[in-house]
């Protein structure tokens, strides 16, 4: 599907979301369709990390699933590497919030699954699998089954599986939501490290402001009812400064300012949404 010359094309790894809307059918027949997302436009250049942030129910997962091709697009269009999204494909890897390791495959078979079904040569495959197992620190567990792993380890397997398949863009829906703060922090650094090395584009959903600022080059802030993109925030302090460690990040003066600003937006949205919900 992704041919070698494709990797050299100018718009490789670019995400374009152009005036995309999403209507879900009403709960029953007489109810009109509900507008979940209204005219969203958002771009990411290759190697950038985009973060979708906003109150619950504003359509973050819906947008991510539309980019993955798992949800139909009601209006507008989405392109990845210049190709229009019409369905799921290996150029857009997805990491879900819930555990999605295949329980019948060992850790290494899980990581190599994408390469196997896309019939990569066994030699290439084992090289790539070894590399990513090493990066996620699960080499000693390569023969284990997912059920024998902790939650954090299983999520690492899911991320490695998506990365090993070498997608143009990595999509993640609250990938660290179920993890404890310490593991969460480690995973954020791990993913950023790998993603920078591979210059991979990332679009992710989170509820965590700190995570958004730490990881995001562009933060898309959504409001609810219907979901609208109300602001794109680009952290003013450079990527390298931000991605040191937790303490260093918090010491940067701009960080506190940005955090309280986003928190304020969240508060406003939250109260507005709860009013309109009644």
């Amino acid at each position: 599907m992704s041919s070698p010359e494709h990797h050299r094309s100018a718009d490789f790894g670019e995400l374009r979301i152009e005036s995309v809307s999403k209507r879900y059918p009403g709960a029953h027949r007489r109810e009109p369709p509900r507008l979940a997302l209204e005219s969203i436009s958002f771009d990411l250049r290759r190697g950038a990390v985009g973060v979708l942030l906003g109150p619950s129910g504003c359509g973050k997962s819906t947008l991510l699933r539309m980019v993955a091709g798992l949800e139909t697009i009601s209006e507008g269009r989405i392109t990845v590497s210049g190709r229009e999204v019409t369905g799921p494909g290996r150029d857009r890897g997805m990491v879900f919030q819930t555990y999605t390791s295949f329980p019948w495959l060992t850790v290494e078979e899980n990581v190599g699954y994408g390469l196997r079904i896309n019939s990569s040569a066994a030699g290439v495959r084992s090289g790539v699998v070894d590399y990513f197992l090493d990066r996620i620190g699960l080499t000693p567990f390569r023969k284990a089954y997912p059920d024998q792993l902790s939650g954090g380890m299983r999520q690492r397997v899911a991320i490695a599986r998506a990365l090993a398949n070498q997608p143009d863009i990595l999509l993640m829906d609250e990938p660290f939501g179920a993890l404890d703060p310490e593991t969460r922090w480690q995973m954020q650094e791990l993913v950023l490290g790998i993603v920078h090395k591979e210059r991979m584009t990332v679009l992710m959903v989170t509820h965590d402001i700190e995570e958004a600022i730490f990881m995001g080059d562009r933060i898309a802030f959504f409001s609810r009812g219907p979901g609208r993109l109300i602001e794109v925030i680009e952290p003013t302090f450079g990527a390298d400064e931000r991605r040191l460690d937790k303490a260093a990040l918090k010491a940067i003066p701009d960080y506190g300012e940005m955090e309280s600003r986003i928190l304020q937006m969240m508060r406003t949205e939250g109260s507005r949404a709860s009013e309109s919900a009644v």
Binding site: G69, L70, M94, F96, A158, R161
Partner: peptide
């Protein structure tokens, strides 16, 4: 689980 199916689809199955 639907997530297993969707995971496979996004891996190119």
């Amino acid at each position: 689980r639907m997530e297993l199916i969707e995971t496979a689809l996004t891996l190119g199955a």
